[in-house]
Design a protein around this nucleic acid. Structure first.
Length: 188
DNA sequence: GCTTACCACGATG
DNA sequence: CATCGTGGTAAGC
C-alpha cells in the first residue's frame, strides 16, 4: 500500500504542486494561478487521499518544477511512478522526453515515430500527468503556431499564453505568433 | 495572406 | 458512439 503526499509552492505568481509516493517517485504534478485548481488536479490522481494530508511546503521536485517553468536547465533526475499510464501514453511520453530544451516537435511527427495518428497523440499529450517534467509544452501544431495547452486536464481551458511563455523562456525563437523553422526537432 | 468547412486518423471512456 | 492539445485539402475572401 503506497501513500501519496502532496507538496505545494507559490512562485512567480503561480502555484505549483507535486504528488509523490513514499519512494519519492513523482505520480503527478500541476501548476496554475489558482491553488484550488492545482489541488483538484492532483486529487484526480490520488483517489480520495487528498485533503487528509496537510501537504508539505518543500520538496526537491517542486524546486525542479519551478526551474523548468522558468526555462532553466534541470538539475536532478526525477523518478516517475507510471502505473496509471496506459501503454500508449508511455510510448508518447518516451518521445516527449527526448525533445531537447529549446526545440519543438509536432503531433504528426510523433505519430509517425510511434506508428499512430496525430489525434491520438494529441489526446495522450493532453493528459500528461507530469507537465513541465515531461515537456508536453514542446509539442505544437504543424504550422508552428503555439497551439493549445490545457494546464493538466483543466477542461476546455486552453492557455496558449502560458505555453508560449514557457517556450519563450527556454529560448525558442518566435517571429510574431510563429516559431522559426530551425527550432523544429524530428524524433528518430 | 487569411478564414472557414469537411473528412480522415487512432485512442479512450 | 462521442470526444479530442491534429493533419490535409479545398474553397472562399
Amino acid at each position: 500500500m503506497i501513500s501519496l503526499q502532496p507538496a505545494f509552492s507559490f512562485q512567480d505568481g503561480t502555484w505549483f504542486g507535486v504528488l509523490v509516493d513514499n519512494n519519492d517517485r513523482l505520480i503527478a504534478c500541476a501548476f496554475s494561478d489558482e491553488k484550488g485548481t492545482v489541488e483538484r488536479n492532483l486529487s484526480d490522481y490520488s483517489e480520495r487521499t487528498m485533503g487528509k494530508h496537510r501537504g508539505m511546503s518543500e520538496h526537491r521536485y517542486l524546486e525542479e518544477m519551478i526551474r523548468i517553468f522558468r526555462g532553466q536547465e534541470p538539475q536532478s533526475r526525477v523518478q516517475f511512478g507510471r502505473e496509471q499510464n496506459t501503454s500508449f501514453q508511455t510510448k508518447v511520453y518516451a518521445v516527449l522526453d527526448r525533445i531537447p530544451r529549446g526545440r519543438v516537435t509536432n503531433y504528426g511527427l510523433i505519430a509517425k515515430a510511434i506508428d499512430s495518428g496525430p489525434r491520438a497523440v494529441g489526446q495522450a499529450v493532453g493528459s500528461n500527468p507530469y507537465p513541465l517534467f515531461v515537456p508536453c509544452h514542446r509539442v505544437v501544431p504543424v504550422d508552428m503556431t503555439v497551439g493549445n495547452y490545457s494546464m493538466s486536464r483543466a477542461p476546455r481551458h486552453s492557455r496558449p499564453d502560458v505555453k508560449k511563455g514557457l517556450l519563450e523562456r527556454e529560448g525558442i525563437p518566435f517571429q510574431g505568433e510563429r516559431i522559426l523553422p530551425g527550432a523544429l526537432w524530428t524524433p528518430g
